[in-house]
Amino acid sequence: MCETMIEVCNLRKSFGTNEILKGINLTVKKGEKVVIIGPSGSGKSTFLRCLNFLEIPTSGTVKIDGHYFAKPNEKLNEKHIAALRTEIGMVFQRFNLFPTMTAIENVMAAQIKIRKKSKEAARETAEKYLKKVGLSERMHYYPSQLSGGQQQRVAIARALAMEPKAMLFDEATSALDPELVGEVLNVIRELADEGMTMVLVTHEMKFAKEVADRIIFMDGGVIVEEGHPQEFFSNPKEERTKAFIKKVEH
């Protein structure tokens, strides 16, 4: 058993000639909650998407619980990448629930098709996680019949039902009406308290301070500064960090 859940080594990503990530190193321990903040366009989403290879890095490596997506200079193996992705849940800004399936079918689908579980076992797990996110009553609703907050909670349940080792959240509450943000943050907070390893991108600074073990500030495709939330917000060292904190806190 290693202590490290996610290990990123010298990660670079370019779109065409435009280099977005310029050499990022990051180690996330098991059970650790890392929050990434930074200005728009700084590469936060791109970085998060590299963590489950939705975006293929131009160079550098990503290791999940000791397993490489691809070893350095190794050819990509689609099946292996897909299998490793099941170990990491991802929650998107725009929910991305499957609209032709009800809430519970959304949560069951990948368990059956990918995890090869029986329908009964998948249903049981789905009910458990829908209950966890407080949606037992809405199991048989279609996404179009649910509020944004409810949809996002189904999306979280869908990711959890694969029993991943870590979760990635990319601005999970940015597309929500203000009054619906709380219910989603509560679910994420509960997950954090249970010891789930998490990497979150968020604009909710208060929430970041509250759940993070470590804050990472990205700008221009590099990690500018990182630290414990208290230390980070009260005593930033870099000029860029100071400017950013000043801007978001007003």
Binding site: F98, I114, R115
Partner: peptide, 30 residues
């Protein structure tokens, strides 16, 4: 079909082909 659908499927561990046939094509048919 929204590109996010394909990504959500990939993130759940579907291969490209599975995502196409199990998630995208049923929506496209509709």
């Amino acid at each position: 079909v929204d590109k996010g659908q394909f990504e959500a499927a990939l993130a759940l561990g579907y291969t490209n082909r599975q995502a196409m046939w199990l998630i995208i094509i049923p929506q496209a048919v509709r």
